[in-house]
């Protein structure tokens, strides 16, 4: 039984590799760009899923962590010529701290009020980045000027970024797998399913959520640095907009909440399609890809609220069971 489930997971991972491999081989910049976005978003929605999926705490302010990461590393690089690797660590640590504090303050709120509070928090960070001109350059944004090389985390080939994003995604998936089978993860699920019961048997669900909020913020900020190094330019609208805060949960929900592979699956389902649509339709139909996002989200929520990935594994499991019983 367990072997079969693992077997199916292997099948799906193999399928994903099958999808990734050809594009890894093709050196086309356009596809490399799409692949980078897909892997980065797989990782980012995965970090959102740590809190949203496992603990059922639906943050709508994750763009704030992403932006803190992107801004910290970029500003340190442009101001102090600090290598983005250390900048990434600094940004992620700062973000983790903010995540812990925000968690400690907001985790007493339930349901949509937590979402509203994090939404407001995201807007506060956005406004600060926009109006604290002396540090962040305001709406002009920050240009990252660095000569290519490992120490600068800047590369001529887009494939280098793809590999970085792949590593990033794998780390996030690894953390999710860890949550799947650790006390911490069980505490989160216990909170999601029944907080009173969990606390009654002595589980400190509050502490567990605060810790994971820190981890989630840390990883999200690392993604922000990656994005900034890839784009060479950031401004409040590109790294702190509400759209980012919505897209991360969107991908996770479509893929499947509360598992390690759901967000990855969701990202591979949505990102390539919308990115290509965006490129093909061009500016004449700006916004169409977002309409499709919205429609997919609503359809999935109303028809398969548990997400596509869990549904698919369930289906595969049933089919293999049927085949086995036939034999």
């Amino acid at each position: 039984m367990l072997e079969k489930i693992i077997n199916n997971k292997v099948k799906i991972i193999a399928f994903l590799i099958f999808v990734i491999a050809p594009s890894l081989l093709s050196k086309d910049d356009f596809y490399a760009g799409i692949l980078f976005q897909t892997l980065l978003w797989a990782g980012m929605s995965g970090t959102w899923n740590l809190l949203g999926g496992y603990a059922g705490q639906f943050s709508l302010g994750h763009a704030a962590f992403f932006g803190i990461g992107a801004y910290t590393s970029s500003l340190l690089a442009s101001g102090l010529h600090l290598t983005p690797w250390l900048g990434m660590l600094a940004g992620a640590s700062l973000s983790a701290m903010v995540g812990v504090i925000l968690g400690a303050i907001c985790f007493r709120l339930r349901g949509h009020f937590f979402s509203l509070a994090t939404l407001a928090f995201g807007q506060i960070v956005y406004i600060i980045a926009l109006s604290w001109r002396s540090v962040t350059n305001g709406s002009e944004g920050v240009l990252i000027m660095s000569s290519p090389g490992w120490s600068e985390m800047a590369f001529n080939s887009k494939m280098a970024y793809v590999y970085l994003a792949l590593i990033y995604m794998l780390i996030v998936v690894g953390v999710s797998f860890y949550l799947d089978r650790s006390r911490l993860g069980y505490f989160l699920v216990a909170y999601r399913e029944n907080d009173e019961a969990a606390r009654a048997i002595g589980v400190n669900t509050f502490l567990a959520r605060v810790i994971v909020s820190g981890i989630s913020a840390f990883l999200m900020a690392a993604g922000g640095t990656l994005y900034a190094q890839y784009m060479y330019y950031i401004d409040p609208d590109s790294v702190l907009s509400i759209a980012l805060s919505v897209q991360a949960p969107l991908i996770a929900i479509v893929g499947g909440l509360g598992g390690a592979l759901g967000p990855v699956f969701g990202s591979f389902l949505i990102l390539p399609m919308t990115q290509m649509l965006r490129a093909w339709l061009g500016t004449s139909f700006s916004g169409l890809h977002l309409i499709i996002y919205g429609v997919i989200l609503i359809v999935v929520l109303l028809l398969i609220p548990e997400g596509i990935f869990p549904k698919l594994t369930e289906y595969l499991k049933k089919r293999t069971e049927k085949e086995n019983s036939k034999c």
Binding site: F58, L60, A243, V246, P249, L250, I253, L290, I291, Y293, G294, V295, L297, I298, L301, L302
Partner: peptide, 9 residues
């Protein structure tokens, strides 16, 4: 998320 999706649409 249904209402968020609606808002995006």
């Amino acid at each position: 998320f249904v209402t968020l999706g609606l808002s995006v649409i």
